[in-house]
Computed example of a mutant assay.
Amino acid sequence: MEASEGKKLNFDNTEIAFRHKSKSELNSAYWLFKIMGSNFLTQVGPPVTNLFLNIGLPIQGLIKATIFKQFCGGETIAECEHTIAQLAVSKVGTILDYSVEGEEEETVFDFTCDEIIRTIDRAAGDPRVPITVFKVTGIGRFGLLEKLDAGHELSAAEIVEYEKVKSRCERICRTAFEKNVPVMIDAEETWIQKTIDDLALEMMMLFNKEKLIVYNTYQMYRHDKLAHIKADHLIAKEKAFILGAKIVRGAYMEKERRRALQMGYPSPIQPDKKSTDQDYNAALVYSIENIMEMGIVCGTHNEASCKLLADLLNEHQISHNHPHVYFSQLLGMSDNLSFNLSDGDYNVAKYVPYGPVKAVMPYLFRRAQENTSIAGQTSRELDLIIREKKRRNV
């Protein structure tokens, strides 16, 4: 039976949501979300910041003390130790996410592969770091994946290049298997996603026979992804492996719609938010109904979906801390979900991005824009912080 049957989930409980934050941390978060509430600053900030960084103006310290501190664990794994310990006090796990992106050189791909393996080594044997993650574009060239997805013939050099990508992917997943540390393969743009999906399925067939190690990511703002989860589940049953599914809404909506319009093909994105929400929640229901054959990471900042999954576990009399069910949010966001869920003994882990300040700027800009573009996200975060400041009289 569930671990905390008597506890009622309350995502408005700011005492639990922010008890890990000191007075100064709470005030810093207040001012940061206040600034991010300005559309003008969120739009103008990225190009100005990039310009300042590129011409060598000393703003790196300012970035590190503000937006970087809110959304990142540090520049290295060692610098993330404080965040790992701080989250663990409230039984929230850490997902170390090396967030360097947009690189093109083989030497960088080899380094990134080694760094992802270092996150797995760091996680091994430490329940505070329960899951790891990587992007295939971190270990392989975007243009190569795009060519594969489009079905174009590869040159001899590109065939060798892709073998290296597969080899890096397998090395990461094999290390995860040997160290008993689950690893998630992140979703990316639709025009490279089929290649990533094929790789993820191949890795699951290799390493998910005995235990749940590899997860693929399903972006439910795509209208074909609910069917995709069900199809992959049937393959998993037939091939006798456990399906790992990280279920998210998605991260590239504007880019996807723009490209579809420019290139004249039907948009892969759902017609509206309601359709996305329906498919997302249907995927949760389907997963819980097949929980012995599937493991899920519910990656969402949506309160209704978190509540639904919590209710489904109770309905099906599944333990709150069942190893096949995790909730996940990003560091610095939706603490009211993460910490209230962990207080109810659900498995929760925060994505903790890290990397050199300049290299993680694209990630940070996306977070700032996401908070502005998701309806009510910034005002919701601000409202909760204000209420906690009032509760503490600070």
Rank of each mutant, 00 (worst) to 15 (best):
C306V: 06
D149V: 11
V348W: 03
Y221K: 03
C298P: 07
Q193Y: 02
G102E: 03
F11P: 02
L148F: 03
E238N: 10
A65C: 05
R222K: 11
A368L: 15
Q70C: 14
D149M: 14
H301I: 01
K246H: 01
I95C: 02
A176W: 00
Q317L: 14
L145N: 04
I269C: 01
M1V: 05
P362S: 11
E178D: 08
P268V: 00
K230I: 06
C298I: 13
P271E: 05
E101P: 03
P47L: 05
G332Q: 06
K209W: 03
A359Q: 13
I374W: 15
I386M: 10
A310C: 09
Q369V: 06
Q369C: 06
A359Y: 12
T175V: 08
E79D: 14
N321G: 07
Y351L: 06
R122H: 04
V352T: 13
L144W: 00
L226F: 12
A231V: 04
D279W: 04
M203W: 00
C298D: 15
Y221C: 11
F327K: 04
H82Q: 15
D311A: 09
E178A: 05
F68K: 04
K255Y: 12
K230L: 09
I77L: 11
P46V: 01
C169S: 14
A156Q: 12
T378R: 11
T107M: 11
G125N: 10
L206F: 09
G376H: 04
F339C: 08
E202R: 13
H320I: 05
T217A: 04
N321F: 07
A78I: 08
S99Y: 00
K274D: 15
F109L: 03
E115L: 12
I77E: 06
A176H: 06
H233C: 12
S155P: 04
L382N: 15
V160T: 09
Q60E: 15
